[in-house]
Every structure is written in structure tokens, then in C-alpha cells.
């Protein structure tokens, strides 16, 4: 196994492009190292991106935030401005694993791990986050939901890696929230996860909304039909009921050791309504 710690993005893409099938990017390593220790595979090449300048920075830009691929989730929680603008994304990132894990793990890694149950992904999708990808042929930017393709599979091409997550400014009267269901109180993995982002019109009705569902399909579901049920409403009970019903309907979960199909379909609606209420309240305070 080869371990490299290059100083530039170009070196990363060149290494990944020339590496074997089992070539991996290492940021926090909270998925990669655990799998290696469990003998899931033997790596050919590991490219550590933490030595690259700027890769561990959260940058405030003219129209949003850029979160470098090596920024640990704990650092997101310590960023007051980011926490104010995107509280749901930050909360999701700070639900992953334990305090110790959050000191290492990253939202880019959470995205690229492509687990259907990833906590930060539904929150990012609801936030309209973009993934900035560097590759041997240059850069491209895609919505984060285009990255995971199914459990453990991504759309990244040979030699590509995510260098940053871009969170656009949501505009005034906006709020977001992420809720997940776990059997315990912490140190657990989502059985269902829901991210909601809302922007209100001046009259307090919902002008726009995005709803994203986790752990109820092979990859994150952007539930556009569900979001439409609450646009134009003030999130009264019928709107919440409609939201819950559509979320349940569009979910395509499996039954496994963590939960049944019925349970997941039911709880995804419950959490969507609860997350929408929190996002609505935050938007009203914004």
C-alpha cells in the first residue's frame, strides 16, 4: 500500500488518475480507516489531502460559504456565521458519530462514502449545496445529490475528488433543519433522516422549499413533490399532513436490521413535518 500526502490539488488528481482500483482519498478517515481495519479490502493507494493549503478552511464568499474537503465537522459547529446561516447543515454534521469522530470526519467524506444513511447529505441537498470537483481534466461543479449513485457508489470519475462543498446564501427569511431517527440518543446511524429548507415570502407564507430524505432509498431522495405541498402555505396542519403523506409515499426503503419498510415510511413523514416546523420557525426569525 502506498501513502501520499501531496501539497497541491493537481498532484492529488494525478495520483488518483494513475492509482489502481483501490485508490482512496483520505481526509478524516473515519470511514476509510475503519473499513481497512475490518479487512474490508486492502488499499493500493491512499492520498491524504490535509496538507493542501485551504483544504481545511471554511471561506465566506460573496454569495455563500466554501467548505474545504478536509474541514472536520466539529469546525463547522465552531463557525458562528455558518451556524447562524445554515443551522440545519451544521446540526446534521454534528450528529455524525461521536465527539471524537466529529473532530476528524468531513461532510465531503460523508457525501463520498455514499451511504444512504449519511446524516449531512439530506441537510446539504435541502440547502441546495454544490460539490466542487477537481479532476485530471479540470474542475466541475454539481449539485451534491448528483454524487451518490447508490450504497458505496459515486458519480466521481477516475482521478476526481471533491475539493469543497459550496453552500449558497439562502436569502432573507430562510431557515433549515435536519432531523434523524435513531434508536439510541447518540452514537448511532440514521434509520430515517430528513432535511428541510424554507424561504418565506414577506407575508409569512412559504415561498420556496426543499425537502430531502435519507435512509429511505438507495440514495438520498430530493422530494420535490413533498416540498410543493407546503409552498404557499403557512405550514398549518393540513399542509404538514400532506407533507408527511407525500414523504412517506415517495420513500422506497428496504427492511433491514435497523428498521422495517412500514416503520421507515411512517417515521419519514413524522420527521419531515417536525423538521419543517423547525425550519419554518427559523425562517420566521431570520
Amino acid at each position: 500500500m502506498r501513502y501520499e500526502r501531496p501539497a497541491t490539488i493537481e498532484d492529488v488528481t494525478a495520483l488518483l488518475a494513475s492509482g489502481g482500483e483501490k485508490s482512496f482519498v483520505l481526509a478524516g478517515g473515519t470511514d476509510l480507516l475503519v473499513r481497512m481495519k475490518n479487512d474490508a479490502f486492502e488499499a493500493d493507494l491512499i492520498v491524504d489531502i490535509k496538507a493542501i493549503e485551504g483544504m481545511s478552511d471554511v471561506t465566506r464568499t460573496a454569495d455563500g460559504f466554501e467548505i474545504g474537503a478536509a474541514v472536520p465537522c466539529a469546525a463547522l459547529g465552531e463557525n458562528a456565521e455558518l451556524s447562524r446561516v445554515w443551522p440545519g447543515v451544521v446540526e446534521a454534521a454534528n450528529l455524525i458519530g461521536s465527539t471524537q469522530i466529529q473532530g476528524r470526519c468531513t461532510i465531503s467524506g460523508n457525501l463520498c462514502n455514499a451511504s444512504p444513511a449519511a446524516d449531512s447529505v439530506p441537510a446539504m441537498v435541502a440547502a441546495g449545496a454544490l460539490a466542487r470537483i477537481a479532476g485530471p481534466d479540470g474542475r466541475r461543479t454539481v449539485p451534491v445529490q448528483d454524487i451518490p449513485q447508490g450504497p458505496g457508489k459515486t458519480s466521481l470519475r477516475k482521478g476526481e475528488f471533491i475539493e469543497a462543498i459550496v453552500l449558497p446564501d439562502p436569502g432573507p427569511r430562510s431557515g433549515d433543519a435536519y432531523l434523524r431517527f435513531i434508536p439510541r440518543t447518540e452514537m448511532d446511524i440514521a434509520v430515517v433522516g430528513v432535511g428541510v429548507q424554507l424561504t418565506l415570502a414577506e407575508d409569512g407564507s412559504i415561498a420556496s422549499a426543499r425537502v430531502a430524505l435519507g435512509a429511505v432509498g438507495p440514495k438520498v431522495i430530493e422530494a420535490t413533490e413533498a416540498a410543493e405541498t407546503i409552498i404557499g402555505t403557512r405550514l398549518d396542519q393540513p399542509a404538514l399532513d400532506a407533507l408527511a403523506a407525500v414523504c412517506s409515499e415517495v420513500s422506497t426503503p428496504i427492511a433491514d436490521k435497523r428498521g422495517t419498510v412500514d416503520f421507515r415510511k411512517q417515521v419519514v413523514g413524522v420527521l419531515a413535518a417536525r423538521a419543517a416546523k423547525i425550519a419554518y420557525q427559523r425562517a420566521g426569525e431570520d
Partner: peptide, 16 residues
């Protein structure tokens, strides 16, 4: 056995 580990064999954590 599908859950031979503490992730999916859930003993309580302190906050439980």
C-alpha cells in the same frame, strides 16, 4: 448473524 458489532447491536450509551 447480521449485527455482530456495537453499531447495530445497541447497548445503551450514557445519554440513554
Amino acid at each position: 448473524l447480521q449485527n455482530p458489532g456495537f453499531l447495530d447491536y445497541r447497548i445503551p450509551v450514557c445519554s440513554d
